[in-house]
Design a protein around this nucleic acid. Sequence first.
RNA 1: GGUCCCAUCGUCUAGCCCGGUUAGGACACCGGCCUCUCACGUCGGCGGCAGGGGUUCAAAUCCCCUUGGGACCGCCA
Length: 477
Amino acid sequence: MVRVRFAPSPTGYLHLGGARTAIFNWLFARHHGGRFILRIEDTDRSRSTQESIQEILEAMRWLGLDWDEGPYRQTERMEIYRREVQKLLEEGKAYYCYCTPEELEERRKKALEEGRMPKYDGRCRERRGPREGVNPVVRLKVDQEGETVIQDLIKGEVVYPNSQLDDFILLRSDGTPTYNFVVVVDDALMGITHVIRGDDHLNNTPKQIQLYRALGYEPPRFAHVPMILGPDRARLSKRHGATSVLAYREDGYLPEALFNFLVRLGWSHGDQEIFSREELIRYFSLEHVGKSPAVYNPDKLLWLNAHYIKTGDTQRLARLLTPFLSKEGLIQEGEEPDPDWLCRVVETLKERARTLKEMAQMAAFYFREPQGYDPKGEKKFLKPQVLPYLEGLVQELEALEDFSEGEIEEAFNRVIARFNIKLKHLAQPCRVALTGKTVSPGIYEIISVMGKEKALSRLKKAIQHVRKKERSEALSH
RNA sequence: GGUCCCAUCGUCUAGCCCGGUUAGGACACCGGCCUCUCACGUCGGCGGCAGGGGUUCAAAUCCCCUUGGGACCGCCA
């Protein structure tokens, strides 16, 4: 049975790279009918926070990454780690080291200056007895001869000279275990079959393999996925913009869009770009994960998001849109617009908005009168010549019982026939009058959704506006 | 500095393992069509095998070197 895990350290939010690793693990588990385990790597107590944990779990839930076991927390498993260290110590595979951090730092600096590799020299291996006033760390006796070979499921065979390895620390002087130790113990004891993680860990793998052997456990299969890079080809970080998964929710992205985007970054299935979750589970395999790092491309994410909005369920979108409406100040906090009406609003905006945030901004005119007219639009379309057309339209609309799109279209047709003008000569002035802008969804649909009362009052207001302007201009001449 | 990883349009990638394609798709960009504006849609265009050596009748594909990029070398994970 396939058992995989996602093991974030709670020292910050879940970022895009971590999310993609989680997604690959989740997909691999679901594809193989295995188990997806969540483990919190919080051995660094000074940097781990409860808020981080909550934020990570929230982000995973949002992305729909459900876990089958956990979340385990390493801080709750200290007894296990102590027991494993004890075992190593008794078997002579690990030893106490009394070198102080200062001494190590000193030697590291010197080595770097002399162009040597900065690694621990193993001087405490043969040491007998403690040193006065120093709390020791525990180090693993690492084999420095020969080489370690990794059969990586993504990178292929990686050969690593053991001379690069040093006796790394298992237990800190305060008795807490380090990452390279707990990760091995946990993966072994939790029966992890495939370790799928970022390739920044590839260099850790040889020492971890040695530790598996020292502990007497069979190493799992490894799959190291390439990093996600920023546009400058440096590892993606905060300075490249939003990297927190939840920030994308705030910005109006749909989880399925981010999910699709992240999977497709580094993995492919022929020429297909859009995948449902079911397809992803069916098609996903490590063989088609690329070996090279991928540059994050926000435009493509935006395109995918637009696609999922366009094709998404209207009722769901309406529900998701509501908080964005209140963020835009269009409705009160906690206010719920009529669901049927909001669905009509969304229908008109679905294929235009790329994010929910954009959609809320585009919807503004449905909720409040134009705050003045777009200057260019006013100059071009709200001029005295159009007054008869707009007045004619007001008459026609007032007479309508049924304010449906079809009826409104017929009303427009009667007006343009009467004045023998083209539709755009009526539609554009009308659009500016109703929305204050020169762009909007189709004119019939917005009038219908807006309703008779709002539409007529705005049209009349625009007519008044044009008249007033006309008078003041006449006076000044 | 050492070790490891990587290299197809600006970006994500198919093709590479098993040599023979006008090197395919998508985003972005540009243009046409559609049209009440914008968008959607649709049609078309621009644009790439990092460089150099081999092997071969034939190399994006196999081998070597160079260059470039990334990661790691912590009492961080």
